[in-house]
Design a protein around this nucleic acid. Structure first.
Lengths: 175, 175
DNA sequence: AATTTAGGTCAGGACGATTGACATATTTTG
DNA sequence: CAAAATATGTCAATCGTCCTGACCTAAATT
């Protein structure tokens, strides 16, 4: 009844489906795939540069958010990155050993370890963000109406609704 | 000589940089971060569903592209995903063992293994794409002028220029 | 017949992430 | 004040996904 054969087990058929998926209501293949490719290349520049330092994406993310929010506490970092303490541990240690970040005991709660970039860490973070911003800028300039605001709203809308407040808080007033 | 004192070695200072980065020409922090958060949540839905099957992102990507382009050959898959044969191996085997994909010897070149989804694989792939499309649709609807075309052009512009033709080919005529 | 190509596989390793269990210092609470 | 909760760190074991290198078969090309 399916495939080239007749009368197969009709519970499960392993026959190949040869036709591509039909355009269906609510199935936006192009945007789904473009988002995948766009993110891949968005992250690639930084990946290449970080490789020279022996760092990976985890290092990049930590470096970025600590720079963006100097004085950030470990718990905040874990929440934003959605990773565990145990995953963060080695990454943080390497960044500190490399002289890119420093830890300072919390002035009020001395259990806390406030995270700050060094000047070296700040410089590298800015350099990485520059590369990514350059790509974004180029992409926006390729639009007819260079509507940065639409792109921003779109990306914000892609975030899980319950998370949007948290992200908006991170961005502070400067959105 | 170092720490809270003055007149440190001026080669390297490990003092914390306490101020956030100043808005600088060509540094678009909001978009850089939104892209990160957006991708994180974009991928999260599918991650959760695939976890039930014991699959990861690699399985998702393979399932997606084989569904999108039934009859795809292993070499094409490697090129799109930019991974090695050795990495693909286990993933492909699991997808085949799970009855989501099948391999068929190439009709002209019998060395080739043409990859096809089964009906089961097609169903799962469509379901995953539905979740992602739903999020995209919602994000676009949150815009004043619901300009899907701008978003598409933006994402396409984010792709490495030398790669854009390759991606356009994958999308075929239906962009 | 020799070489190249498409694909598969084995070994060994790296990285980034996980969970579980536990340790330490400090703050908060009863 | 003692007990509990909190912030952080660390050890151990494991997993998924990627890597390189080496080698294999089958089939196509030269």
């Amino acid at each position: 009844m399916s495939g080239t054969n007749t009368l197969e087990s009709n519970t499960v058929s392993n026959s190949p489906v040869v036709d591509p998926p039909q355009p269906e209501e609510g199935l936006d293949f192009p945007l789904v795939e473009l988002f995948f490719f766009a993110y891949r290349d968005f992250i690639a520049d930084a990946d290449d540069m970080l490789e020279e330092y022996g760092f990976g994406r985890a290092h990049h993310r930590v470096l970025h958010f600590v720079n963006r929010r100097p004085g950030m506490v470990v718990a905040e970092l874990l929440e934003i990155l959605r990773i565990t303490k145990q995953s963060l541990g080695p990454v943080l240690r390497q960044l500190i050993e490399s002289g890119l970040l420093v830890q300072v005991a919390g002035p009020e709660d001395r259990r806390q370890r406030l995270l700050y970039p060094t000047q070296k860490g700040r410089n590298l973070s800015i350099e990485l963000t520059h590369m990514q911003s350059r790509r974004i800028k180029r992409a926006i300039e390729s639009l007819k109406n260079k509507d940065r605001e639409s792109i921003k709203d779109f990306l914000f809308g892609m975030i899980e609704p319950e998370e949007q407040d948290l992200v908006e808080g991170l961005m502070d007033k400067e959105r």
